[in-house]
């Protein structure tokens, strides 16, 4: 899922400096699990903004905020509340926020969150980054553990000199990706694969902005 962190209250208030009234949009997907776009987060935001003298005209929980057309339909019943607001504050990820930018052509739309990474939920409300969406998965060669993501240097061919009793020199909280990869490939009997030199990444696969269209399969008759 997409991991978001709530911006500091002061930063959100500063963003809304020139705005008197706000409509809030949350998201039932990732941002709810992160607690940054859940009904509770929306209620807390309402309270914060009202304490700052802003009028909150209403709020809406999008089912999947990055789904542009679906969210547009969900917003229809709230038309009056939205019309009454100077700005929309979106409490989801950057994709959800920009979905609303697309929907509201002439209205100010602002983010309430910082979007940080693609995360695995490893415990309740603990998220770990395992994949950085490089567009060219190589974990078949690295024991199923991604060094592009879990090694701060993204090294593809083994540990650097900074591996420190199995931990990373960058932070004592990070396990050395290559110590883990080696241990796992030893267990799975794949160490020979680790001897092969892995070429540099093809960064053209990571070129932004990306568009991906799944073509409808024609039924074969």
């Amino acid at each position: 899922m997409i991991i978001t962190k709530a911006k500091e209250k002061g930063d959100v208030v500063a963003t809304l400096k020139d705005v008197k009234s706000v409509f809030l949009i949350g998201c039932s997907e990732c941002a709810s699990l992160c607690g940054t776009g859940s009904p509770e987060a929306l209620a807390a935001m309402k309270e914060t903004l009202e304490a700052e003298g802003k009028k909150v005209t209403g709020s809406m929980m999008a089912k999947t905020g990055c789904q542009v057309l679906g969210t547009k339909v969900e917003l229809k019943p709230a038309k009056e509340e939205i019309d009454a607001a100077d700005a929309i504050l979106v409490m989801s990820c950057g994709a959800g926020t920009q979905a609303m930018v697309e929907v509201f052509k002439d209205k100010r739309v602002y983010p309430a969150n910082d979007t940080t990474f693609l995360g695995n939920m490893t415990r309740f409300q603990q998220f770990d980054e395992r994949c950085s969406m490089c567009g060219e998965c190589i974990i078949d060669k690295t024991g199923g553990i991604c060094p592009v993501t879990t090694c701060p240097k993204g090294i593809l061919n083994g540990p650097c000199g900074g591996t420190n009793n199995g931990m990373c020199e960058v932070s004592p909280d990070i396990e050395c990706a290559w110590a883990k990869i080696y241990a796992r490939m030893e267990r799975t009997g794949e160490l020979d694969k680790m001897r092969e030199i892995v070429p540099p990444k093809d960064y053209s696969k990571k070129l932004s902005p990306k568009v991906w269209v799944i073509e409808k399969k024609k039924e074969e008759k």
Partner: peptide, 12 residues
């Protein structure tokens, strides 16, 4: 430490 992954990289 651990040494083995380092040795493997040395060979690479």
């Amino acid at each position: 430490n651990p040494l083995e992954p380092q040795m493997l990289k040395f060979e690479k």
